[in-house]
Design a protein around this nucleic acid. Structure first.
Lengths: 225, 225
DNA sequence: TATTGAATTTATAAAATCTTTACACAGAGC
DNA sequence: GCTCTGTGTAAAGATTTTATAAATTCAATA
């Protein structure tokens, strides 16, 4: 596997140096930018796997850089913020930041969050259309096509399949699915799930008795593939 | 790379001498302690990469030292025990020992187990996918691949293999496994374990009659590698 | 208000999994 | 050789989990 490339946008040289050493010794390839403008150019010319962005610059240019990046860059952006500056954090998350870290941070935590963010890149959470064999799920338009034919799904059915699509290949527990689709009060209503998985299968599977897309993991939950 | 530091806690001078010679000639730095108390102090003042602890002292102080060390020391502890004292071994493994060796032992085996134990120190188990030769165990997705093919495991089978995977190279006692998978009330239901280890082997081993991944440590438990 | 489509329940058959029993086999000790 | 202990395997229940149809409730709307 190739080294994942990380872009650091921060005006403080000592932070950049620290990050450079930490990340390179953990097998990442590091690219640096000193100003927001430079960062955007770097990101555009050579899109990295992940961007670490210092948000709390005095002139608030960090926020503008984030917005500008988010117009086209859909991989993870982790923001760095001085401690206790919650308004910066909230604004940044609203503007599409993936995660945040308060300075000073522990490297173990930074690395863990980076791994998590990069993992999310790989499962197409940011793309608007998920491809799964004969199925195409358009998250933005809320449409599902099977062999290029538009399927007619109800709202709950669509919510369910889009949750599956965003977590392709991994087992989702009943509780998790119920929490995500119906809300925290419904985590034990496993039967709802059965009914809706049943009707989804009728629509998306070639043979609903032998489902290939929504596989049941008995005693645990379901897996979409 | 620096020499890894090993702490030996054993009251028998001739054993300590033997270990000292063996280990130093194999590139380890050796620190010795004659009593349990001294051992704990040594470990605390200068945490070693690995501890070799004689468990079978007449006054059972070895067990107490182990428990005391485990309150804060989380690297590997290999215990030494006189042959056939299985109850000592089982107790020690349940108390968090990493591995065990019966005296008299062959130096090649000692060195091999030390290497394995030290290797496990270096990769802390915060990874979500464990690689074991032809097997890949994805803890987050709850999937297991053998030669890149997805295996179909039941929920309990997966729980079992993931427990094994998180403790690669380490002997797990029957009691420990049963406690982790089935709960505290099941620590004596060894037969459950036999059945499930059997069905796991059928799925993951090339030749279930000669298992290479799940090895049985007779009278003690199992080891995954 | 009557209609319609969707969501929620209920009921039940079927499938999958877990538990338990039975028995065979191997090695250690006598 | 025999017995005892620990182990592995198969298979028969027992139990849990799942799938499906169908009934009911609910909400929107004509």
């Amino acid at each position: 596997m190739n080294k994942a490339e990380i872009l650091i946008i921060d005006d403080e040289p000592q932070i950049r140096k620290l990050l450079e050493i930490t990340l390179e010794s953990n097998g990442y390839k590091v690219v640096q930018a000193e100003t927001g403008k430079e960062g955007v150019i770097q990101a555009a010319s050579h899109p990295p796997e992940l961007i670490l962005l210092d948000i709390g610059l005095p002139d608030r240019s960090g926020h503008e850089v984030l917005k500008e990046l988010r117009q086209w860059y859909n991989k993870s952006i982790i923001i760095l913020s001085v401690q206790n500056n919650e308004s910066d954090i909230v604004t940044a998350l609203d503007n599409g930041a993936t995660d945040y870290l308060s300075k000073p941070f522990r490297t173990a935590e930074l690395l863990a969050r980076m791994r998590s963010a990069i993992r999310r890149n790989q499962t197409p959470n940011n793309t608007t259309v998920v491809d799964a064999g004969d199925l195409q799920i358009n998250l933005a338009a809320r449409t599902v096509k099977k062999n290029n034919e538009l399927l007619k799904l109800t709202s709950t059915e669509f919510n369910l399949i889009s949750l599956f699509a965003c977590n392709e290949g991994r087992v989702l527990t009943h509780r998790f699915i119920l929490k995500e689709i119906w809300g925290v009060g419904y985590q034990t209503e496993t039967q709802y799930l059965r009914v809706f998985v049943g009707s989804l299968r009728k629509k998306i599977e070639d043979n609903p008795n032998n489902p290939l897309h929504i596989v049941t993991e008995s005693g645990v939950g379901y897996r979409f593939q």
